[in-house]
Design a protein around this nucleic acid. Structure first.
Length: 777
DNA sequence: CAGTGAGCGAGCTTCCGCTTGACTT
């Protein structure tokens, strides 16, 4: 029998700690929370002072059973969950469920997983902090109240299965507002003037200075007038300013900054980053990956120092302690760093190695010296005009942390990271002007959020936690509020005026702009739901809502506020909003009237229907006279917000008949799975580059024949015994098709060699496992 | 798998934060 049972949250942590503690300690994991509010019911007894109804969820029953029996045998149970609100609550739930009382239970916390820290913690046990637990209960109950009262309003007013919540609804709001900002953005242009000057030094070497005019012109005429003024101008260096500057490294990674950098530098999605990090953590290669702390342990600081000295020398080392600045941080863990900083590389998959490399560099760089720079600004005067040219350069005098790592930014503008060295000049020296270019530049419209930049924004507002950033992004996409996608760039013309060799020339070029990859776009549903929530539940949609309730949670944690009193204060006005919103009879469908149809004069409108966004021709009230309105679904890429009358009207022209083939009609239309050709009751998807309104009979026949060819190759084997049973070749390789259901062929089994009985066996065994899986759910 | 869009009502959905597997149709 082991006398001491230590319970931590994660099994990987348990394994490490067990090694530090002697044989008389057994370390187990709770796998996070063991109890939660009842999911099938409302879970909160509103009439009874918001009493929570906690239950042990099915997937935790086995864990709890094991912990219970171990706890019974142990003399002392050490609850070592994290030192934040959620961790304290986990400890409390464990104490309750395992029926631990008095001397038998001890609460301990440690800030780093080292032998010393843990032994120290064991020597300084404390009691469970019930105020902190209450703050968690308040957080939990508030989220349940919001989610389970507002979501049903959406089912009634918009569409079933939708959801609303303190975090997700605000995340969607951010994306919707960004989209409207883009829709409403008015592009303007100015003329930016750049002069290219030449100077010859004493040795006769020629060098070039690129300088930008201090003024931008509003239009071509003004820019042209300026260039004319410069025809006979001379240029003089009027002023040279040299200033030292320094740049400091970014702090070590938190969950959110790791997600951002892995997205920018490695192109990982937020969830991808988290699962790769999880594998590194489980392999003992990095510290815990869900954290909001930038703190490094003293051990980490020491190994960083010696590693930096070893690799780059003493003057590259500068030990730094960072302070967390993000709102609502709870700092239960260290920053994300390599467990062993002296290991520059690791074994593992390519993905793991790249992420580890990023973490290693960021951690090490954070403990390195500042980079020292010299910034030079040269002002060039024009003899015939008042404006000045400004040339700026930057020289790195000492690279410091830049030797290892530079943080990326979201706005990858034209600026290069490299140095821009200016040639040596002296005040008063004359410059020869080689060329002046005045180019039309457009204002840049805002870009949509990436997964990672949304996480950044949420963190800045104190919304969501490290463990929830990735799930939030999945949720808002699963609910159909947001889609991740690309947008092709548009092209536009721009004018450049050039002054060279005493002549002013004009040229018109084209450029592409506004191209976006892997960005978050709101759907029509997302917009309609956001508008509805903004109108009916404004206080909850406020960007500061979370921050304000967090303040109250802090008061609860400090013992200054009783949790169910706080919830009561929130619930009364909130529930009134719920009731009021239900009293309004009309549904929220985002309807927009586009105008009359030029042919029939009937009204054309767009709105959300039962099956998604649609256009409608005619009004329902017309139905009295026998004419029912016509409907058509919007195509992917179209939205209620931006569709034009012309685009809407062309949707009614489907299905479009384009001719006959083999005596049967060929038509084009669009369905749930995108645009298709219909022929002889068969459906063939259109290719990505085919235009629905441009496809002709020739192209259609091509596609029909291609499809026939593919179908011929699809059948690998048929059986005399049963016509329903076939072996087919699909997207993922061979599979068995039987009575309209598909079955997998296990790896190592050759499809060609399978006989009738072999197939039946596979079908039987797969049916067994699938019913098992269903039962588990 | 490729129609649909009236209205009613059965029975369903839904939150956020802690954790890791079990899943690949």
């Amino acid at each position: 029998m082991v006398e001491n049972l230590v319970i931590v949250e994660s099994p990987a942590k348990a394994k490490t700690i067990e090694k530090f503690l002697g044989k008389e300690f057994q370390v187990k994991s709770s796998f996070g929370h063991i109890r939660d509010l009842n999911k099938k019911e409302f879970g909160v007894d509103i009439k009874n002072d918001f009493k929570p109804d906690y239950i042990i969820s099915d997937d935790k029953k086995a864990v709890v059973k094991e912990l219970k029996s171990l706890a019974k045998e142990a003399k002392t149970v050490w609850l070592a969950s994290d030192e934040d609100r959620e961790g304290e609550a986990i400890a409390w739930h464990l104490a309750e469920v395992l029926e631990l009382e008095g001397e038998k239970v001890k609460r301990i916390v440690f800030h780093e997983i080292t032998k010393n820290a843990i032994l120290e913690a064991i020597n300084k046990p404390r009691l469970i902090n019930k105020s902190l637990v209450d703050a968690q209960q308040a957080r939990r109950v508030l989220d349940r109240l919001v989610g389970f009262e507002v979501s049903p309003v959406l089912w009634k007013k918009v569409k079933p299965q939708l959801s609303a919540g303190r975090v997700q609804s605000v995340a969607v709001r951010l994306i919707v507002e960004k989209e409207r900002e883009i829709i409403n953005f008015k592009t303007t242009s100015t003329y930016r003037v750049v002069g290219i000057f030449q100077i010859t030094d004493d040795q006769g070497n020629l060098s070039e200075i690129k300088a930008e005019l201090s003024k931008r012109f509003d239009n071509k005429a003004e820019a042209g007038a300026f260039l004319s003024k410069c025809l006979d101008a001379t240029y003089t260096v009027e002023n040279i300013v040299t200033k030292p500057a320094k740049r400091s490294p970014a702090p070590p990674f938190t969950t959110s900054t790791l997600q951002q950098e892995a997205s920018r530098k490695l192109g990982y999605s937020v969830s991808q980053t988290m699962s790769v990090a999880q594998r590194l953590y489980e392999a003992g290669k990095i510290t815990y990956m869900r954290t909001d702390s930038v703190n490094l342990s003293s051990l980490a600081l020491n190994t960083s120092h010696s590693k930096i000295v070893e690799l780059y020398g003493e003057k590259y080392s500068k030990t730094r302690q960072y302070k967390t600045s993000s709102k609502g941080a709870q700092e239960a863990h260290e920053a994300i760093r390599p467990t062993y900083i002296d290991k520059e590389t690791i074994s593992g998959t390519k993905q793991e190695q790249r992420l580890y490399d990023l973490i290693w560099k960021r951690t090490v760089a954070s403990q390195m010296s500042d980079a020292l720079l010299e910034k030079t600004t040269i002002t060039i005067g024009i003899s015939t005009a008042e404006e000045k040219y400004i040339a700026s350069g930057e020289v790195i005098k000492f690279d410091g942390f830049l030797k290892v790592y530079t943080e990326s930014t979201d706005e990858d503008d034209e600026k290069k990271n490299g140095q821009n060295i200016l040639p040596p000049v002296t005040e008063g020296s004359k410059l020869k002007c080689n060329e002046i270019v005045a180019a039309q530049r457009f204002t840049v419209r805002p870009s949509r959020y990436t997964e990672a930049s949304l996480v950044k924004k949420l963190e800045e507002q104190g919304i969501g936690r490290p463990s929830t950033y990735a799930p939030i992004i999945t949720t808002i996409q699963n609910r159909g509020y947001v889609v991740k996608g690309d947008k092709p760039g548009e092209t536009r013309k721009f004018v450049t005026l050039t002054l060279k060799n005493g002549n002013i020339g004009e040229k018109t070029n084209t450029e592409t702009f506004g191209q976006e990859k892997s960005k978050l776009f709101p759907t029509d549903i997302g917009m309609v739901v956001t508008d509805f929530l903004m109108k009916s539940f404004n206080p909850i949609m406020d960007y500061n809502f979370t921050a304000r309730v967090e303040e109250q949670f802090d008061d609860i944690a400090d013992g200054g506020l009783v949790w169910n009193k706080m919830i009561g204060g929130f619930y009364k006005p909130f529930h009134k909003l719920v009731e009021e919103s239900l009293q309004v009879s009309e549904k929220a469908n985002g309807e927009r009237i586009l105008g009359p149809d030029p042919e029939s004069g009937k009204q054309v409108s767009v709105k959300i229907g039962r099956y998604g966004p649609l256009v409608q021709l005619g009004e329902t009230t017309d139905g009295e006279n026998g004419d029912k309105p016509k409907f058509a679904s919007l195509q992917p890429g179209q939205s209620i917000e931006t569709i034009t009358l012309d685009e809407a009207i062309s949707l009614f022209k489907l299905p479009r008949e384009i001719g006959d083939y083999e005596g049967k009609k060929v038509s084009v239309s669009v369905g749930r799975f995108g645009p298709y050709i219909r022929h002889d009751n068969k459906f063939i998807s259109l290719g990505k580059n085919d235009d629905l309104f441009a496809v002709d009979l020739n192209r259609a026949v091509e596609l029909i024949e291609a499809k026939r060819e593919k179908d011929r190759n699809a059948i690998i084997k048929v059986f005399e015994e049963d016509a329903d049973l076939k072996i087919l070749n699909g997207r993922w390789g061979p599979y068995i098709s039987f009575k309209k259901k598909n079955y997998k062929i296990p790896k190592g089994t050759k499809a060609e060699e399978l006989d009738y009985n072999g197939c039946l066996k596979l079908i039987e065994s797969s049916q067994k496992t699938s019913t098992k899986a269903k039962r588990k759910k």
